[in-house]
Design a protein around this nucleic acid. Structure first.
Lengths: 194, 194, 194, 194
DNA sequence: CATGAATGAGGGTTCATTCAT
DNA sequence: GATGAATGAACCCTCATTCAT
């Protein structure tokens, strides 16, 4: 008996989505493939998720928890705020060198779904808001311990760091190389030195 | 015979693709819609483009010329290398405030087409290589005129600037706001001051 | 346990069917909607009714009692046979002006289920037989009290009246108007005067 | 080679619909069955008819022409208005004894599609309006030649005749017997004698 | 060279029903 | 006896592409 059967149908579907939506994209992945790989009947799928879009939202929510977990786990190995901030980029490097790195799951979906006000887009924005807030917390910590914040504002600095994180992710996705992450890390390091 | 639309069929198709692929996405845009809006027969389409993918490549090539043209037109209004570099971000702002700004056409397509070795991906990489090279030229110009490059390497600095451009584009696409561009501009400005 | 809905499951299902099958049609109404609106578990449904068709039969039987009740209640307000016959059409008018009048439940089902020999068809025919018999009773009463039946046969006259009732129902359903009922009433009145 | 292939796809589809929608009903007939019996690919179907509903409308329009043609052909064999009116019912009898008589195609569809304002309903009403108008023309002819219309109004009389036609059709559909048509014929005959 | 009718595979979704718990 | 997760067939429809004319 297939060992996958041991998890319930909903979990199998969600794990399949985590894999396929990320690797293949949302539009390029059909319900048929999802149910085949989940070993689930079509109606079972629809009794768990009212639509493909609903699965997408569940996928994004699960991905958010997963990814933020990865990020925080790595970052919180560091003691100082400065090392935490650089640790963000160290995390990006280790993530990027994963065999099936395909960039940011959220930005990829957003590229496929132009509609600005959809539920899917809200999940994307929520994710980015949390990432931005997380960076801001780290930078506030730096500025708190480090007296010489040079008049810089934690919020404004966090925005810059966030933009660099985004740039690092999409550029390393494009080039399939870590150099954009290293460049971003270096740039952030320089900015914090000032 | 209605010939008041006197561009040839190929051009009409390409212009329709420039509009639809960008606004709706590549996968979400069907051949039928393209031929309908191009006012072209189906077989005329296929005699001009052997496949949808071939049209996509032509689209990316055309988009590359278009977008680089926009960029250079704005940047070359400036005299100094420093102003040219900041002008890149000024261009991004004016582009972003366009009514149908949907981020980077190339990154969007790359998000839809995971396959790493496809012809489509090559177009994306070519575009980014040219953008990176353009930034490098600007920065070389700065470092040449400005004696105090502080030991910085133009290539490495260009990579940082490039990462910030990418971050600015995707983040402003996500938030539908110019603040990421402004943050990136400010960060780049600070980096160049050092 | 929520037992404030204290009809048993079977009754709740049947009442939901009375509403939905009539308003939406038999084929257009799914089992899922029925169990959802009945607040009943799926297997509870199937333990009460072996199939959708079985529910349909129960629906038709319940509808028969209901509708014949409405008819008789109105008709038996009248004293003379003649007034009773006209009262049939008065009933049709008041029924027709109900907000969700959708014609004859039995004829509607018969339109959806072509199979001639099904159990469902039997219910339809039973209903019509009883309606025909009821009309025949009224007309027999007229002919009994009224010496001058002019050699007319109660059975044959009842058939004519029945045909007019059917025509009045379906035509008023089609036109969403009472005029067919009024025309039928007038025609029947004239026939009885002769 | 299948001889059906000689007609074009659209005609094959329409003829299949004329058969299946009438015999099986609209909802009970799937697109898959239609394309199978039409020997047409699925996309060919949809390039000819934008939707199942569109096919339904084409079906009703074709059925209207067909049925009115049958009716008129029979009725216009008669010379006098009175014989023409009775000829309507003679037509109904010959139609009804057809092997696959299933009542009025229009009323059947209307029973399946409750929505009052749909395009489908409009076709049904158009058909009935034309039938009513045709009966009115016949009756006007009777009243014109026959001086003694007894003060009766052709329009009002036509409505009565129309209601009887409807009743005859649905009742003979229900009982699978011609007696309702004969009863209606007799009733109409009596009404015209007065 | 230009056309539009035709294709088969697949899209997302809902159906009535069954079965282990 | 009551439950809700699970089923496979069928639903209507769209896809990118081809081919006879």
């Amino acid at each position: 008996m297939n060992k996958n059967i041991d998890k319930n149908a909903r979990n199998r579907i969600l794990e399949t989505a985590l894999d396929l939506f990320y690797r293949q994209g949302y539009l390029a992945t059909g319900i048929n493939q999802i149910i085949a790989e989940s070993q689930v009947a079509k109606a079972t799928f629809y009794s768990n998720f009212p639509s493909k879009e609903a699965l997408c939202i569940a996928y994004l929510q699960a991905r958010h928890l997963l990814w933020m977990g990865w990020l925080k786990e790595r970052v919180e190995q560091e003691q100082s705020g400065r090392d935490k901030l650089l640790g963000v980029f160290d995390f990006l490097k280790s993530w990027m060198t994963d065999s099936d790195f395909r960039g940011c799951a959220f930005l990829n979906i957003a590229s496929e779904i132009p509609a600005i006000d959809s539920d899917i887009r809200n999940e994307v924005i929520n994710h980015k808001n949390e990432l931005l807030k997380y960076l801001q917390n780290i930078i506030s910590e730096i500025f708190a311990t480090d007296a010489s914040s040079n008049g810089s504002n934690a919020i404004e600095t966090a925005k810059m760091a966030y933009v660099m994180v985004e740039g690092a992710i999409v550029a390393s996705q494009n080039y399939h190389d870590v150099w954009p992450i290293e460049s971003a890390r270096e740039a952030v390091g320089k900015l914090m030195e000032m």
